[in-house]
């Protein structure tokens, strides 16, 4: 295990350009706006069941996905709106899916927890904790067998490191040296339980040693640092050097799901983490690099209008025809 401590204010080779960073900022603001809109829609009873928001974790999704190229794949958890959007899924169709519209990514059959857009490489969001790590391993196995040099990126939460499927998948990827990047978003809580109450190691990246792969812990609220660490892991994977376990240390601004007020969090914890909110941090970095304030403001304005337009269009779409119930069971 090593801790990546490179400061993101000093540019290193392979870092995103200022323009790329502006694009990443826009995407992070879109994700934040998307989640806020979903929360409002939920309170208006426009979202069914449950929904799990990723406010505060945008740098993990955007930083890691920015290290991929077309042909690579990404799978994620039920807290995956950000990751799917970071791969390039349309705001309108992602909104439409969660609102249960026929124009949704999954024709309204998946909802918040199963967002999938294969066209952009987002192969699925999974609602059984840890169940997708074996699938991510299979995506990498296909890349190996087909010699495509494609990489499989897999997001999972801190809580999932305690479930059996994760152990099997990490072990298989390790023994076969498959091209997978396992990205653990450590937001300090598994549902309502703080990590130390469920997990006997403090740094989850330490667990990588048991699978014969490098484990790296990174500041998950620093989008440039995330990008660097994942880009290095992706390069290793493409070169046939096997999987990497990345632990992105981050924080969930909201509760576990729906209207969970997260009263189990100690007083002051949220406030301390808000000081490290990844979006203002990226704006400050851009300013430090000399990017014009107007360009930063423009990125924010573009993101906000894209969210508003996407939401309005999704709301206007129709519900799935009832006949669709019988489609997509078999090919």
């Amino acid at each position: 295990m090593r801790l990546d401590t490179t400061s993101s204010s000093a540019v290193v080779e392979g870092d995103p350009t200022d323009d790329e960073l502006l694009g990443m900022l826009r995407r992070m603001i879109e994700i934040r706006g998307f989640e806020d809109e979903i929360q409002r829609a939920f309170t208006k009873n426009l979202v069914r069941g449950s929904t799990h928001l990723c406010n505060g974790q945008e740098a993990c999704a955007v930083g890691a996905c920015s290290a991929l190229r077309p042909g690579d794949s990404m799978v994620c958890t039920y807290r995956g709106h950000g990751a799917v959007l970071a791969m390039g899924a349309s705001l309108e169709r992602t909104f439409a899916e969660i609102l249960g519209r026929e124009t949704g990514l999954c024709r309204g059959k998946g909802g918040s927890m199963h967002l999938t857009d294969v066209e952009v490489g987002a192969y699925g969001s999974f609602a059984i904790v840890g169940a997708h790590l074996p699938i991510a391993t299979g995506l990498a196995l296909a890349a190996r067998l087909d010699r495509t040099e494609a990489v499989s990126l897999c997001f999972f939460g801190d809580g999932s490191t305690n479930i059996g499927a994760v152990h099997e998948a990490l072990n298989l990827a390790g023994i076969w040296r498959l091209p997978v990047v396992f990205f653990c978003e450590n937001n300090l809580y598994g549902e309502y339980s703080p990590l130390p109450s469920t997990t006997p190691v403090e740094q989850l990246a330490d667990r990588a040693a048991g699978y014969g792969m490098p484990g790296v812990r990174v500041d998950g609220n620093d989008v440039v640092a995330v990008r660097r660490v994942v880009a290095e892991a992706v390069a290793r994977a493409r070169a046939g050097e096997g999987p990497t376990f990345v632990e992105g240390l981050t924080y969930r601004h909201r509760g576990h799901s729906r209207t969970d007020p997260a009263k189990y969090r100690p007083a002051g914890e949220l406030e301390r983490w808000l000081e490290h909110d990844p979006i203002p941090r990226l704006e400050a970095l851009l300013a430090e690099r000399g990017v014009a304030a107007a360009a930063i403001a423009q990125a924010r304005a573009d993101a906000e209008s894209a969210v508003a337009e996407g939401y309005a269009a999704a709301l206007a779409a129709s519900a799935p025809a009832v006949e669709l119930i019988h489609e997509d069971v078999y090919a």
């Binding site: 794949s73 294969v118 074996p134 699938i135 995506l139 499989s152």
Partner: peptide, 11 residues
Amino acid sequence: GASIGAALKGR
């Protein structure tokens, strides 16, 4: 799971 993942890519 690995079979599922490989099938997603056409195997």
